[in-house]
Amino acid sequence: MARRSAPTARRTRVATELRKLRERAGLTATEAARLLGTSQGQLSNVETARFGVSGDRIRAMAQAYSCCNHAFVEALVGMSEDRRKGWWEEYRSILPTDLIDLAELEHHAHGLRGAITAHVPGLLQTIDHAREIFRQAVPEMPPPEIEHRVSFRIKRQAVLYGPAPHPYQALIHEAALRIEVGGPAVARAQLQHLLDMSERDHITIQVVPFKAGAVPGSGQSIYYAYGPVPQLDTVHLDQSHGLAFLDAEAQLEKYRALFDRIEAVALSAADSRDLIHSISRSL
């Protein structure tokens, strides 16, 4: 087991899932350590992500905990053994940790789904749109930090390009499309970018129109990242005090249902493109 001074969100998730497996098996840390032939302290270090854990060790723990879900166990093994550093690491000393965790989550996701009311989703923002958003932050950001944030956001968008881009569904409220962020020229360019991206086979953009009335989840930006198996999905909430990551089974089920309800009142992809065209022409 290798000591990690700053565990990533991905490895922390592995540690959390191993603790959950032990608890579901009805074992105390002392009992589990005895079964595994290790000390309670070492097991604690694994479950809190202070130590990394090998694939063989994960399989042994799953067997000791009577976990028969092979796909889930192998997904944990894959997450633990992939120790490659991503592009986001160069920002670790510059930007908040939760943004680094978000980029890592997106990179390893098997699919992405987002619902947002007041803003265009970050993965679909133009450079000028993103820069204006960060200029409006409270407290005010100094210019160098704004540029770091903009470059980080644009690099995150790499998950939508390349030979194997992530499937991505964006549910965007009409309000976000009508806010002229950066003025008419920037707003028109942003709308055109949405139209261009909506033509890609792996991207679905649907607009929730004003006429849909009240919709669930309209008070927050919600992001759903699909893991290699459903148990390893993650919900990301963008809140005024920072980012939150949720992965409890009940929470995942709640937000899957919430997304389905939002999608049910959204326009079709074709009708959404027509509305975006209409808004763009009116600017």
Rank of each mutant, 00 (worst) to 15 (best):
R273Y: 00
G114W: 11
E249V: 00
E132Y: 09
R281H: 02
M1H: 12
T234Y: 01
F152M: 05
R261V: 00
G111E: 11
P142Q: 14
F259N: 03
V138G: 00
E180T: 07
I154S: 11
A15P: 06
S198E: 06
T16C: 03
K211R: 14
A25R: 06
L43Q: 06
G78V: 08
A164M: 08
A9K: 11
D238T: 11
R59D: 12
D271L: 05
L35K: 15
E174C: 05
H107V: 00
H241T: 14
I116Q: 15
R113Q: 11
S240P: 05
S282H: 06
A62C: 12
Y91G: 08
K155T: 09
R200F: 08
S198Y: 02
A266C: 01
I205P: 07
P167F: 02
I172V: 15
R50A: 13
L36N: 09
L27V: 03
I133M: 13
V229M: 01
V181D: 03
E81Y: 10
Q63V: 15
Y168N: 03
P7H: 07
S93Y: 13
S54N: 14
Q192W: 04
E90D: 14
D238W: 10
A109G: 03
F51D: 13
R19N: 02
R261D: 05
A187Q: 11
P167L: 05
S268P: 00
I172R: 05
T117G: 02
Y91Q: 12
G227R: 05
L243A: 15
M79H: 13
L258A: 04
E263F: 07
L35E: 14
V215Q: 04
A244V: 11
L95F: 09
L18F: 10
V150D: 08
L194W: 04
A185V: 12
P139S: 11
F152A: 07
A270G: 01
A244E: 14
D233E: 07
R135E: 12
E23F: 06
V73E: 06
P228M: 05
A118L: 13
E31H: 14
E249C: 00
P216S: 07
S268L: 04
R10F: 00
Q220W: 01
A175H: 03
E174P: 06
V120E: 00
G122L: 02
H193F: 15
Q63F: 13
I205W: 04
R24I: 03
A2T: 11
A15D: 04
R19S: 09
I279C: 05
S39K: 07
Q239R: 14
E140F: 08
A270H: 08
D274H: 01
G213V: 05
V235C: 08
S240V: 15
S272N: 00
F210Y: 15
S66F: 04
Y224K: 01
V235R: 04
L252A: 09
G213R: 03
I205S: 00
R153T: 05
